[in-house]
């Protein structure tokens, strides 16, 4: 499953550690939320980078205290039809100011890339290799956006306002 990060296909330095496996002291690892919440203080302070896979039906409040110590939060799309992780992503970015890697996992398909990007995801475990290769083109498909989200893209409403200003300012 190719990983797309910052718009490019890259290798994944993070290793998934199963709930019954030993947690290594160093190295970049991804843990389940259950495992992580078993000992969050220690796990978030280990020497290597630590990431958590957070299910889409679990309250973010349990994760928020550790956000600034996490390298990755991976949110889950059990199917592409289940859109709960879009809300979680926006809350992490826009309300809780999470600045680490925000990864989309599960059924991550081409036609949802732009929605995910706009919601705040910056890395994607893409299901199909062809979709991963099409990432750069796909996310350029739209140039007009109607809603403000944390991605900073200017909304149509604001662009119109700016246009009006520049029109009325010109002689």
């Amino acid at each position: 499953m190719p990983l797309v990060k910052d718009g490019k296909i890259t290798g994944d330095e993070f290793i998934h550690v199963a709930d019954d496996a030993e947690v290594p002291g160093g190295g970049a690892i991804l843990l389940s939320s259950t495992r992580f919440l078993g000992d969050p203080e220690a796990l978030s302070r280990r020497a290597g980078k630590t990431g958590v896979i957070w299910p889409n039906n679990r309250d973010l409040d349990d994760l928020v205290p550790y956000l600034d110590r996490l390298a990755v939060v991976a949110l889950v799309f059990p199917t592409f039809r289940d859109g709960r992780a879009y809300s979680q992503a926006r809350l992490l970015r826009e309300r809780h100011n999470y600045r680490g890697e925000l990864r989309a996992t599960g059924q991550v398909l081409r036609d949802q890339f732009l929605f995910m990007l706009r919601a705040g995801f910056d890395s994607f475990e893409v299901k199909k290799p062809a979709d991963a290769e099409a990432f750069a083109i796909t996310v350029k498909r739209y140039s007009v956006f109607y809603q403000p989200t944390g991605d900073g893209r200017m909304t149509a409403l604001h662009r119109r306002m700016m246009l009006r200003h520049s029109e009325s300012a010109s002689p």
Partner: peptide, 13 residues
Amino acid sequence: RQYTTLHPEFSFL
């Protein structure tokens, strides 16, 4: 209409 069109958070309700 504009606000809800292609909303990145609410297209998979």
